[in-house]
Design a binder for these strands. Structure first.
Length: 559
RNA sequence: CGGGAUGUGGCUCAGCCUGGUUAGAGCGCCGCGUUUGGGACGCGGAGGCCGCCGGUUCGAAUCCGGCCAUCCCGACCA
């Protein structure tokens, strides 16, 4: 294609409202444009990349026997009311002209289950269906370009099985396909256990791509045998240096001390030998005291999972009423409600709040001085040891680019998707759902493959395989040669972007660096004099001068 | 939804604090010419309800109030 005829509106400067590298570069390179917060147009270049990702996903889905179909964005509210998802705040609700309620689907479990009601016999199972469709979500806060948006294309696949074994098989089939997809896309990705969120169901796995920006924190072991989302990651913290022990809790005055650091300093103890009390309130109004080591942070999500309810931090007023002390001096002793302590506090003596403002207790010991329920409720920290091998845990910001779930009967029960087994017994279908957002894959690819000059696309995702830069004005010999070479490369199977615009060389080079095609071929009279052209590999920016007749071989066939 | 910031030609921004002729710069765009291996140069041009509404004032891009939009942090989140 000739650049002179394409709509590739590149920007010389970074857009003022972009921070994430992918956001900046995709906008600057003319791949995407924002229409409103979280609503994006894919321009021709961006859509080429998007569709390359789609094709890879499609090929791997088809290879698993998953069948492509197409379901509408607009769905009747009734389906969502039946599954209890109608009240999700992110659900975009609309009405038709007769004011009948509809929903712009944020995902298609309801609709696909509606169709799954036609699977009546065990003979019809298993089945796997998928489609690419626009998803709509009324996000409270769209952000970082393509990372969190209000409307986006997603590949969502659904499996239908008669029993747990079948579901397990389907789940693993999809999981393996996901690894192949991201491998083909040239992405570094980790599959980690994840929360199921608003999807319902049991097991789920997240596919996290490390990147310079993103909403997830990926925890990995340096030895490569452990990876998890920070939300559920388990780390082994260092052992505390315990001070002298006490036969009974020893009250010390700690006036004005509200931070662990100040407390540890005042008492001359290791912060890891102190405890931190975090009162939280469950949805039923019950107050629970979360207890973690002084140098740790309470993970509210973990705590919420253990107590089986969403929780919020208690207000200062609630804390004073319950404990009779200011928040900085609260502890487990004398508290009549449930104490949920982190495993790290099971053994040893710790400093704890005395439930008396301005006082703490030294030598507080579980079992002797207070009772508690133990669980992993601390947030893993960088530098913690790996729970598997003891190696060091590292943290990376990551983008969630895929998520697979075992849904079980969460949708089939309320929507009545049932089948008859061999015994004539009616049973609900067991479902799984499997999503990938090509837009996020695109953003992750940029996050992982760029430098100060622009994007360096993985071969499989690049908008064009080769960017041929013709030096000189239209009609010049170099330009004609460039056109001929571009044609030859195309005949050889490569997709080619020919920069035939009447622009200065520097501008063309800068544009090519920004757009990021894997290979750049510079055709100018300087090298043409001895029958050669310059071939630059974008990743690493290594340039080599090659004879024109070797060009096709040098550039290679497309991925 | 809480906290913070920003809204001025297509883009990036200055001007606002301390109100006062036709509102500026760089880049981009159009025309002519010179140029052509890392974002050239000269000359001439086009393009702005200064986010919106209201208030203060003789006078508002500038001060005050309300609203809207966008970005960032948090809450939230397939």
């Amino acid at each position: 294609m000739r650049a002179s005829q394409l709509f590739i509106p590149t920007l010389r400067e970074d857009p003022g409202d972009a921070e994430a590298a992918s956001h900046r570069l995709l906008v600057r390179g003319g791949f995407v444009r924002q229409v409103a917060a979280g609503l994006w147009t894919f321009l021709p270049l961006g859509w080429r990349v998007h569709e390359k990702i789609v094709q890879i996903v499609r090929a791997e889905m088809d290879a698993t026997g998953c069948q492509e179909m197409f379901m509408p964005v607009v769905t009747p509210a009734e389906l969502w009311q039946r599954t209890g998802r109608y009240d999700i705040p992110e659900l975009w609700k609309v009405q038709d002209r007769l004011e009948r309620p509809f929903v712009l689907a944020m995902t298609h479990e309801e609709t696909v289950t509606f169709h799954a009601r036609e699977l009546r016999s065990y003979r019809d199972l298993p089945q796997m269906l998928y489609h690419f469709q626009t998803k709509v979500r009324d996000e409270p806060r769209p952000r970082a370009g393509l990372l969190r948006v209000r409307e986006f294309v997603m590949k969502d696949a659904y499996s239908f099985d008669r029993d747990e074994e079948g579901l397990e098989r389907s789940f693993r089939l999809q999981e393996a396909a996901y690894h192949r997809i991201f491998e083909r896309c040239g992405l570094e990705v980790y599959a980690v256990q994840a929360e199921s969120g608003m999807m319902g169901g049991s097991e789920s796995a997240d596919f996290l791509a490390p990147s310079g920006s993103g909403e997830n924190t990926l925890v990995t072991c340096e030895k490569g045998d452990y990876s998890a989302d920070l939300e559920i990651a388990h780390g082994v913290p260092r052992a505390p240096e315990f001070p002298e022990s006490f036969d009974a809790p020893d009250a010390v005055e700690t006036p004005g001390v509200t931070t662990i650091e100040a407390l540890a300093e005042l008492l001359g103890v290791d912060t890891a030998a102190t405890s931190k009390a975090m009162p939280v309130v469950k949805t039923d109004g019950t107050l629970v005291l979360g207890l973690v080591r002084g140098d740790d942070r309470l993970d509210e999500a973990k705590l919420a999972a253990v107590v089986g309810s969403a929780v919020r931090p208690a207000t200062e007023e609630e804390i004073r009423n319950t404990f009779g002390a200011d928040p900085g001096s609260v502890g487990p002793l004398g508290f009549s409600g449930e104490v949920l302590a982190d495993e790290t506090l099971r053994n040893g003596q710790f400093v704890a709040g005395a439930n008396r403002t301005g006082w703490h207790l030294r030598g507080v010991e579980h079992g002797r001085d207070f009772e508690a329920r133990f669980a992993d409720i601390r947030q893993a920290k960088e530098g913690d040891a790996c729970p598997r091998c003891g190696g060091r845990l590292g943290f990376q910001t990551a983008i969630e680019i895929g998520h697979i779930f075992k849904l079980g009967t969460f949708y089939s029960e309320p929507l009545g998707a049932k089948f008859l087994d061999e015994e004539g017994q009616e049973r609900p279908i067991l479902m799984g759902s499997y999503g990938i957002g090509p837009g996020r894959v695109m953003a992750a690819a940029v996050e992982q493959n760029h430098d100060e000059h622009g994007i360096a696309w993985p071969r499989a995702l690049a908008p064009y395989d080769v960017h041929v830069v013709a030096i000189g004005a239209a009609g010049a010999e170099a330009v004609e040669t460039a056109e001929r070479l571009a044609g030859e490369l195309e005949e050889n199977g490569a997709s080619v972007l020919l920069d035939d615009r009447d622009q200065r060389p520097g501008e063309k080079f800068a544009g090519a660096d920004l757009i990021g095609c894997p290979t750049r071929v510079t055709v100018g009279k300087k090298t043409l004099e001895d029958g050669r052209v310059d071939v630059l590999v974008r990743a690493g920016r290594v340039e080599e001068r090659v004879p024109v007749e070797d060009l096709a071989g040098q550039v290679g066939s497309p991925a």
